[in-house]
Computed example of a mutant assay.
Amino acid sequence: MPRFMGFVRMVEGGGMPPQALFDAMDKYIGEQAQAGHFLDGGGLFGTEDAVNFVVRKGETTRVDGPYAEAKEVVGGWALLQYDTLEEAIAGQQEFAELHAKYWPECEMVATLRQVSDEAPEAASA
């Protein structure tokens, strides 16, 4: 059964979601988990404590947050499982529509990507 990763990207510091959204999300996630679609997920803290390792030209550099230049950050994630891509898309749309209904002033992007179950091919040198 195909697995998918859902991401929520939004402007950092956009305020706390209203309680109505938390309540709607608890219900939605509970239903999705009971149906076997929601496997795991959660919200993420802000970038103030984030750590990035940037690789450029064979060098690794550590860059600590916060990141003032970042316009959008990943605010949450979910590991999902559906029988078909179409079902996964419908589920992600329903998730996004909950935000539009219960937090209309929020600007966010809900991204859905399928998880690859195949081993990556090694890059040729």
Score class of each variant (00 low, 15 high):
E107T: 09
D49V: 08
K27L: 11
C106T: 10
V115S: 07
D83P: 03
W77R: 01
A100M: 15
L85H: 12
A96S: 08
A20V: 10
V11N: 03
E86L: 08
F38I: 02
V11Y: 03
L21T: 01
E105T: 15
H99I: 13
A88G: 01
G58S: 05
F45W: 15
E107P: 04
H37F: 08
D26G: 11
A50L: 04
W103E: 00
G65F: 04
G75I: 02
V74P: 00
A100I: 14
E87S: 11
V55K: 12
T84N: 06
Q19M: 13
G14D: 03
D83C: 04
P120H: 07
A78D: 03
Y82Q: 00
Y102Q: 05
R62E: 09
D83V: 03
E59S: 14
A88W: 00
P18L: 08
D117I: 07
A96H: 06
Q114S: 09
M108C: 10
Q32G: 05
D64R: 07
H37E: 08
D64N: 11
V74F: 03
T47V: 06
F7G: 01
Q81D: 07
Q19N: 13
I29L: 10
Y102S: 04
M1W: 11
N52T: 15
G6K: 02
D83I: 03
L39T: 08
G41R: 01
V63R: 05
K71A: 10
L79A: 11
A50W: 03
P18R: 09
M16N: 10
M5I: 08
G30W: 02
K71S: 10
